[in-house]
């Protein structure tokens, strides 16, 4: 039994000091502050907020009707009068379409990850907390799904369920459950073996109570960090599904779908064709960098 009081004698107080000096409440407040201090993360957060706000308020701020076509003004270049970002192959205003497209694409990025986090998190925490047979049962099933590449799985599911936004949402959710379950299981297993969980059991508390009050608080951080990194993948896969005709169907505005229909015009109006791709790129990169920063912020164990 080691009386290892003195493992890293100086490194530990060093890590302690900043936390102790300004002693303020919650863990999440500290994480928030840390993220805001990171300039890259701050820029990403602003970009995402702008995209999200413009998507939410699209009906009010969009300059035109997203579905109004005109054969006369097809593929106008950007900076044309009345059409700042030009028009698409059916003469619809690009800016309007991009704003409306954000509504579908962002929801398709966030919603499936959210659902998968809830379901996968519950599965993973259950598997990790109870261990043994429960763990085996849950994790082996998850492994089977895990064996397929996520894009392939999404395409297959969407193919089985049929095209449409709702179905692609379901297939994306199913795609993300296995990886989230895995992460949740591994962090729960770590937390479960901590002395404070043992101490909580020693008070006679029920499993449900321990999970809700001790485990959940300590696993949500890592799970959310991981989930936030999946949002960008979800945006890309859902765009891919739309591109393949398995997701949103015309005339709905969706970045992936727009990319698909505009690709024939790539030589005629290259900028117009690339714009939806730029949006997908901006949103997914921002989510990724933000999630990285979140991870670093939470890593600092006070």
């Amino acid at each position: 039994m080691s009386a290892a009081a003195e493992a890293a004698p100086a490194a530990r107080p060093a890590a302690n000091a900043p936390g102790r000096r300004r002693r303020t409440g919650g863990f999440w407040q500290r994480v928030g502050r840390q993220v805001l201090r990171d300039k890259v993360a701050l820029v990403c957060a602003v970009v995402l907020a702008l995209i999200a706000l413009s998507a939410i308020f699209a009906p009010w701020i969009a300059p035109a009707d997203p579905y109004k076509t005109s054969m006369l003004r097809r593929l106008l270049p950007p900076l044309s009068p009345n059409f700042i970002l030009g028009t698409d192959e059916l003469g619809r205003d690009m800016l309007t379409r991009l704003l409306y497209g954000g509504r579908v694409s962002l929801s398709m990025g966030i919603a499936p990850v959210l659902f998968a986090t809830i379901l996968g998190g519950a599965l993973g925490i259950t598997a990790g907390y109870f261990g043994k047979a429960v763990n085996m049962a849950i994790m082996r099933v998850v492994d089977v799904f895990y064996a397929f590449p996520s894009v392939l799985l999404a395409v297959a599911m969407a193919g089985v369920l049929g095209a449409g936004i709702f179905n692609s949402l379901i297939s994306l959710t199913l795609v993300f459950i296995p990886p989230i379950t895995r992460v949740a299981e591994s962090v729960t297993t770590q937390v479960r073996n901590q002395d404070y969980v043992e101490a909580a059991r020693a008070t006679g508390a029920s499993s449900v109570r321990i999970i809700l009050q001790h485990v959940l608080a300590n696993v949500t951080g890592p799970i959310l960090t991981y989930a936030s990194s999946l949002v960008s993948i979800a945006i890309i896969i859902s765009s891919g599904l739309s591109f393949l005709g398995l997701g949103a169907a015309p005339p709905i505005a969706d970045w992936g779908l727009m990319l698909n229909t505009l690709r024939q015009a790539i030589y005629v109006a290259p900028i117009n064709a690339v714009l939806p791709g730029v949006m997908i790129f901006a949103a997914s990169v921002s989510f990724n960098l933000l999630s990285d920063s979140l991870r670093t912020a939470m890593d600092v164990r006070a």
Partner: peptide
């Protein structure tokens, strides 16, 4: 010394 006394450093 005790932990943090700087002996290892």
């Amino acid at each position: 010394g005790e932990s943090g006394s700087g002996k290892s450093v």
